[in-house]
Nucleic acid binder design. Sequence first.
RNA 1: GCGCCGUUAGCUCAAUUGGCAGAGCAACUGACUCUUAAUCAGUAGGUUCGGGGUUCGACUCCCUGACGGCGCACCA
Length: 507
Amino acid sequence: MRDRYAKLEKLREIGVDPYAYSFDPSHSLARAKTEFEVLESEEGETDAGEGPHVELPGVRVAGRILSYRDLGGSAFAHVGDADGRIQIHLKKNVLGEDGAALMELLDLGDWIGVEGDIFRTRRGEVTVRVTSLDLLSKTLRPLPFGKEEVLESGERIVHSGFSDLAQRYRQRYADLAVNPEVREVFRLRTRLTTELRRWLDDRGFIEVETPVLQPLYGGALARPFTTHHHSLDQQMYLRIADELYLKRLIVGNMDRVYEIGHDFRNEGIDRTHNPEFTMLELYYAYADYRDVMELTETLVSDVVTAVAGTTEFEWDGNTIDLAAPWRRISWAEAFSEHTGLDVVESTTEELTEAVKRSGREDADGLSRVQLLDSLFSSHVEDGIIHPTFVYDHPIEMSPLAKPTRGNPAFAERFEAIVCGFELVNAFSELNDPLDQWRRFADQAQLRAAGDDEAMVIDEDYVRALEYGMPPTGGFGMGVDRLVMLVTGQTSIRDVVLFPVLRPEEVE
RNA sequence: GCGCCGUUAGCUCAAUUGGCAGAGCAACUGACUCUUAAUCAGUAGGUUCGGGGUUCGACUCCCUGACGGCGCACCA
């Protein structure tokens, strides 16, 4: 870095501002290249060095220097921007004295703007013959570039690239700058959320924003992040779910609503859990959970097709197909199939025994619900690879869902499970205020008994239900997890730009 | 929280049994005006993650701490 500080001084000495104020490109790098190729095909021959000499004159482009090959009197470099790269040819006798002096002071990573004509070199690469060179921003810290090889097939091989995971997450800016495939993951992520919105907007859903900072948390079973509002002198929480606010909107005659936003859960971190994650929740009037199942499989299947052109994905060694329809199996059936136990008939002692056998030592203190949940996660969920709706959960596990018609020990709820993790959770939403009150009361009892993930009573929410909520279906979907499936990433950290990490000291 | 593995130059990695800490790329100096993992000649670059210990001697062995990966546990 010391060398680069010296270059800063030299730049100022020769009258170059190392941090320019602006530049006005005529083309993005990708467009410049494409436009040249179109021109070439219109004018005939494209054979390198043969045929008519085609040029696209007067192009102004900008980007970061990715590679540099100094040949003395001239140099070749690759310049990259957000989604393209192009080779440039710098010649000292063309650039003149000032330009030549500037060339001497360039480093990998520097931002430059150039003007010139595009031609194809003898070796066949589309290249800008630079007539004017501007430094836009000097790089003081060397970027961790690898050496790059592009095979005839167009495949890009990086040698000794930037691969230390911790560093890549902490210095995502450097990761993005040198690893275009990382940029591609996040570009695809954005296309996916854009398509989700388009799909929902087309069907009359409206996007809303509900509070992230809440006086009470609810809508899921999880520990919250807690904070304090000074002037109200009140405990506040970061939301763990959007659910209760969105359903208040259904009460308020907003028939179809959705929200894409961050939820926060104060739980462990692993490859499918980041404490802050993106949830899509939607609710619509007059629907039950069967309707939501159809909506779910259609939505996912349509949206992934729109962004990836396929519903088939390779993920962690499995090939999965997200095309509708998805398999359906009842919770009780899946449970007895994989554990050999009956949900209703089994005694709490039998369940406790089974949990202990599955390797968990704290089984004795657990409630029946926790036992069932524990067995389900360890025996059933992990084994489900292909998209599957598991429906009709035990009602004690589902305090916001209507009882299953004709079978009130269960609730009209489903989870969509793919590759061993939960992608979607949905209900026929409970709209009976008296029943909802009883369910909250049951949760309060669990809480009193020491289950710190049980729900807290939300009296205002019950008041809203008293005003009447129509029959409603709704779901919550883990957007990060869908992005993981579509991009083939097996860690949520690879689809979150700045994942939660332990703090470090910056040198 | 528990277990296993890891942390060496800016980046990617070596270092035999405990015996002089090395390479490629990047950087720097020089040569070269169609190169593309450019090439050629040379130079410099280190608190071997931190702290403690064993030893004549520690990158290497022991203890401890930090950070990371994987697995388990927790977790809609």
